[in-house]
Amino acid sequence: MKKVVGKILYATDFSSQSEKAADFVKALKPVCNKVVVLHVVDRATLEAYEDAMLWSGKFESRDKLVEMLTKKAESKLRKIAEKFENESFEVELSVELGKPWRVILNIAGREKVDLIVIGSHGCSQNSLCDLEAVIGSTAEKVVRHSNLPVVVVK
C-alpha cells in the first residue's frame, strides 16, 4: 500500500520540544516510512563555541570548530536515528550550517519531503505572546515561508 505522507523532514535542536516532535513522527508510522533527521548549527552557536575556545586559549580555526560541532551533532543524530530505525523507518541524517529556518526549507526542497515536523519553544500560556514567541522564531519562519505542510509540536 502506498504511504500517504511518504517522506518527513524532522528538524531537531536536541531540545525537549524536539524530542516531543520525534514522538509525533513515530506516531505517523502507519502513513509514512522515510524520515530525514536534520540538525542545523546556527551562527550564534558557532560564535558561542568560538568564544569559549578563545577564552580557554585552545582555538585553532573556524573550520576545525565546524568539524567538531558537526561530529558532535552527528553522534547525537545517530542516537535519534536508532530510535526511528527501531520503529522500522528508513532514516537519512543531515547536519548543516546556516540560518536554521532557511536550511530547513532548502533541505525540504532538495529531499522532496511531504511534511516538515519541528518542535516549538515559547513562553507560558498565561503571558501575552505573538506567534513567534509562542512557537519559536525558527518554527514561525518555517511555517510562514514553507509551501509544504508543517507540523509544529508543542
Partner: peptide, 19 residues
Amino acid sequence: GGMNAAWTGLLGGNVPLAI
C-alpha cells in the same frame, strides 16, 4: 566569569547554556 564558557567548551558541554 567568562571561564565558565571556556571550561564548558573544553569539556564538550553546552556552551550556549553557559553563556
